[in-house]
Simulated assay, not measured.
Amino acid sequence: MTDLRNTGRGIMREVIGDDYFDKREASTNAFNAEARRLSEEYCFGEIWSRPGLDRKTRSLLSITTMIALNRQHELRIHVGTALNNGATPDEIREVLLQSIIYCGLPAGLEGVRVAEEVLASRGLL
């Protein structure tokens, strides 16, 4: 395993949490292993490890990106990641409101629904 991949896996475990990481590990198979390797090495090992932005900011940016791309599954993960990285529900709400304007009302409202589910599941609503 490369140093970049080890770095990425460590960051991934920290930002998405042990439970999700362990489930992801348990579901890795011959078909998805290479895609997961790319995610670990380049997304987390290369980009999330850069010093230019803190993890909370990266998480909040990821929320907007997932809304813009209409990726609810990944949005759920990134709302949880943002909370793990120190974002508050108020900060997440502000990102959602900005996303409504820049990404469009339907996509933004879907983002609000997804975020509400995550926040409620953590007892934050």
Rank of each mutant, 00 (worst) to 15 (best):
M1N: 01
M1I: 06
T2K: 10
L4R: 04
L4T: 13
R5A: 06
N6W: 07
N6P: 02
N6A: 15
T7W: 04
T7L: 10
T7S: 07
T7D: 01
G8V: 03
R9M: 07
G10C: 06
M12S: 06
R13M: 12
R13Q: 13
E14K: 15
E14Q: 15
I16G: 00
I16E: 01
D18S: 14
D19F: 12
Y20C: 08
F21I: 02
R24N: 14
R24T: 15
E25G: 02
A26I: 12
T28N: 07
N29C: 13
A30Q: 14
F31D: 09
N32V: 06
N32R: 10
E34D: 14
E34S: 13
A35E: 10
A35Q: 02
A35L: 13
R36A: 11
R37K: 13
R37E: 06
L38Q: 11
E40Y: 08
E40W: 01
E40T: 03
Y42W: 11
C43M: 09
C43H: 04
C43D: 00
G45M: 02
G45S: 11
S49A: 13
S49H: 02
P51N: 13
L53D: 04
L53A: 09
L53R: 10
R55D: 13
K56W: 10
S59D: 02
L60D: 03
L61K: 01
L61H: 03
L61I: 12
I63A: 08
T64Y: 05
T65A: 15
A68N: 08
N70C: 03
R71C: 11
R71T: 13
Q72P: 01
H73W: 05
H73N: 15
E74R: 05
R76L: 07
G80C: 09
L83A: 02
N85H: 14
N85I: 05
G86F: 09
A87E: 07
A87M: 05
T88Y: 08
T88H: 05
T88L: 13
E91R: 09
E94W: 05
L97P: 00
Q98T: 09
Q98H: 11
S99Y: 01
S99H: 01
I100E: 00
I101H: 12
I101S: 14
L105C: 12
L105F: 15
P106I: 04
G108Y: 03
E110Q: 13
E110N: 15
A115S: 15
E116A: 14
V118H: 02
S121L: 06
G123V: 03
G123T: 06
L125D: 08
